[in-house]
Amino acid sequence: MEQPTLTPAKCFVRDLVDGQEVDAIFVVKARNRRQKRNGQPFLKLELGDVTGSVEGVVWDGVDELAPVCDSGAVVRVLGRFSIDERYGAGITIQRVRLAAEGEYDLADLTEVPPVPYHQLAADLQSLVNTVQRPHLRELLARLIDPTTRVGRAYHEAPAAKYYHQAYRHGLLEHCLSVAQGVSALAATFPGIDRDIAVAGALLHDIGKVETYASRNGAIELTDLGKLLGEIPLGYYRVRRMIERIEGFPRADAAALLHLVLSHHGKLEHGSPVVPCTREATLVHFIDNLGGNLGSFDRIEKALAGGALWSDFDRGLATAAYFGARSDQQPREAA
C-alpha cells in the first residue's frame, strides 16, 4: 500500500482536535475484528502513544490490513479524527502500514516511570536491606533480585493492562511505592510486624510476572493470566519458593501467603479471602491508594493542554480534576 515516506510531524493523541487530518505514528495496543450490520468485517483498533490512546476504525480492506495491525505493531496511520456525540472520539482510518525504521522514536510511543529505572532499583535494594529476618531477605533475593530469572521479569513487567503503571518497570514502581508507604506507616500504627508487611508489599503482585506479556507498550493477558489470574499465580510462586528455603517459619509463611491472597480486599474483587491481619489490611489499603493515584497520573498525561477536568474514568469511577498548581510545569510528551 502506497503512502508518503517522509517522516510525519509529531502528532500526539492528547493534541488531536475534532476534524483534524491525521498522518501519525502509533502503537497498536489492541485489535478487534467486528462485523457491520450487513455482515461485512471491520477492524476496531486501540492506537496509542506516550500521551494516551485513541480508537481507530478500518472499514475497508480488512483482510489485507489485519496482519499489519497486530498488537504491539508500530504503524503509520492516515485518516481523520472526529468526535461523535454518540460514539465518542476516534480516527477513521483511510490507510495504514507498518512504520519504517527512522520514521519514529520509540520514546514517543511508550510510557516509562517518572523515576529512572536505576533509581527505582537502588531504592528497592535499600528497602530490602532494612528487612531484619534472614529468611525473609533470602525469599526476596530469590524472587525480586534482578540477577534471577523471575527477578528480571519483576523489574520489567507492567503493573496493569490499563489503569495504573501500565508500562515497562511499572510493576517494580508500584510494588516499591506500596512497600515504602507500608514501611512509613508501620512505625505509626502499633502492633504491625514491619518485616512481614514490607516483604508482603514487595511480593503482593508478583503473580503479574506471569499474567502479562508486553510488546512496544501493548499489554496483553497471557494464557495463564486468563486461566488462573494474578493472585493464584503469585500465591503458588511465593509458596513454592518458601518451601525451598530450609527452616522458613510456618507462621511467617502463613502471614505472607495470606497477604498475597487477600490484597484485593474483597471476594468480589478477586481475593479468595479478605484481609484478617494488621499487615494484610495495611498492604491492601496502600495498594488500593497507589492504584488510584496511578490512575491520576495516567489521566493527566492524556489531558489536553489547559483542560482541568477529564472525562469519566472507570478506574476512578468519576472524572478527575486538575486545578492550577504552583508546581505545574508544561508537560512534554518525551
Rank of each mutant, 00 (worst) to 15 (best):
P114H: 10
R14K: 14
E103D: 14
E103F: 11
E21R: 11
D63W: 00
Q20H: 04
G19S: 12
G52C: 04
P67V: 09
V57I: 15
G39A: 08
D123T: 04
E111S: 05
A24Q: 04
A122I: 05
S82V: 02
Q132H: 11
A122Y: 06
L98W: 00
R86C: 02
R14T: 06
R142H: 13
A9W: 08
V17N: 05
I93L: 08
V17D: 05
D123C: 00
L45I: 09
G88E: 05
Y104I: 06
L65V: 07
N32Y: 00
G72C: 08
E55S: 12
E111Y: 01
R142K: 13
A107M: 14
G19A: 13
A141C: 08
L136S: 05
D18K: 03
P113T: 04
A24R: 01
Q125V: 05
F42N: 00
V50A: 15
L124R: 12
D23L: 12
R34T: 07
D23T: 09
I91M: 01
V74R: 01
R31C: 03
A141S: 15
A89Q: 13
E85R: 15
V128D: 14
G48K: 00
G72M: 09
A66K: 08
Q132G: 04
T92S: 13
E138D: 15
D123Y: 03
S53A: 08
F26S: 03
I25T: 06
G48W: 02
S71D: 12
P41M: 05
G48M: 01
A30C: 05
C11I: 07
L127N: 03
V22L: 08
V22P: 02
P41L: 02
E138Q: 15
G19F: 11
R142W: 10
P116L: 04
F42A: 04
E101V: 10
Y104N: 13
F26M: 07
Q132V: 15
V62I: 10
E138G: 02
V28E: 07
D70C: 03
G88P: 01
P116F: 03
I25K: 01
W59D: 12
L120T: 06
V68C: 10
G79C: 06
K10N: 13
V17Y: 05
R86D: 14
R31S: 01
L16M: 13
L98A: 13
G88L: 01
V131G: 04
D108A: 12
A66W: 01
Q40D: 15
L45R: 01
V22Y: 07
G56S: 09
L78W: 11
V50M: 01
T130G: 06
G52Y: 06
G102S: 10
G88A: 06
Q132T: 15
V77L: 09
A100D: 14
D84Y: 03
R76W: 04
A9D: 15
E64D: 13
D70N: 10
R34K: 14
G56P: 07
K29P: 00
V62D: 01
L65I: 06
V13R: 00
D23M: 09
F12H: 12
